[in-house]
Each structure stands twice: as C-alpha cells, then as structure tokens.
Amino acid sequence: MSTPIEPIRTVHGRGVVVRGDDIDTDRIIPARYLRCVTFDDLGDALFWDVRHDDDGRPTGHPLDDERFAGASVLISGRNFGCGSSREHAPQSIRRAGFDAVIAQSFGEIFFGNSTTLGLVCIELGPDDLEEIARAVEREPAVAIEIDVEAELVRVGDRSLRGSIAASARRALTSGRYDPLAELLEGDAAIAGVAERLPYVGQR
C-alpha cells in the first residue's frame, strides 16, 4: 500500500445518457461475464445484452452511438446499480472509460463498490437529472463538470446541486477512497476487538 492515491476533487468530461430506473447489476454486466479470475477485460461487456440483439448485432444503444464516443460521465435514472454485490459492475463501467455516474439514487452496495474504485456517484433530483439528460442528448459535446466537495454538477452555464454521501465525499477528496491502507493501520485495535469477542476463535 505504498503508492498514495490521488484525491478526486472534480471530474470533467462529456456525458452519455442511459435512460431507465432500477437498472440492476445484471443489466450492467450479465452473469456470464463474471466467469473471470481478474477484472481486466470487463470494459467491453458493459451493458452487453442491451447493446446487442440475440444474433449479436448492435441495437443502437447510446454507448455505441458515435455522438457520445469518449463520454466519461454516465447519466441514468433512479436506483442505479441495484441488485447483486458484483463489483464487476462498477469495474466494467470504470474500464469502459467512465469516471462518474449521475443518477437519482444508487443501489447501496454498488455505491460503495464504486467509491472504492474512485468512480464518483452523485445523486441529482429528478428535474435536474432530466435537464442534464436533455442537454447531453441535444448536444453530446457539452462539457460536464462534477465538483465533488461542493456536490455540484455544472453543465454549460448551469450549476445543479446534487448530493454525495459525506463519507464518500471525504474519501474521494482526501484520496482515501480505497480504504485498505487505513484499515491496515488499525491493526492493534483489530486485535483488541477480536480478543473481546467471545465467539471469535471459539470452536
């Protein structure tokens, strides 16, 4: 754990809108792509079943639309990433080139998994979300900036107030979003708790 991670204070990029509420992790990455012992090649599998028909032909999904090529901010609806704990989901989003997801709300495990990977998840109210989705669909090149600390999404000359859980915000902006180094520092205290718990070590 020697290399410190860079703080993430802002995300700049272009957006792509994947419409829908309750987009679950099975949709984000179908189970057959979980057959891997590393996460390295997951980028291509992102939304595979929605992007391809039964014969493997592209369905014209926004992620395959030329106009949104190079997008690094994914915009979706309510309860994004609900369902399974598979980290494959945020891993595939990350490896497909995204730095942030904007949605009305997030599945809880997905949110935590994403934060650990430095994938910024910010919530916006439904009206603001619709406004930004329309702006991006109208003008794919529009610049999006997410200010993590201020919990703001700036699109063109508009500035929209969003929300990011305080713990995630602090973790991202301090560069401690991967908690492992800090967890390891608690070694003595861990031993103390293990000692105190009657069931640990009992057999």
Partner: peptide, 25 residues
C-alpha cells in the same frame, strides 16, 4: 474497531464466507 477519517466505522467481521465467483480477484 474505530472511526475512520471519512466518518465511517471500521467494523470487525466475525465470519467471512467466500465462493468461486467473487473471491479469485
């Protein structure tokens, strides 16, 4: 165990269960 910098809790996990799909990585 203790409070972390970001305000979360470092929580001791008494029992950890693993299976073939989410553990190799």
């Amino acid at each position: 165990v203790r409070e972390l910098d970001n305000g979360q809790t470092q929580l001791f996990i008494g029992t950890h269960l693993i299976h073939e799909v989410t553990s190799p990585q």
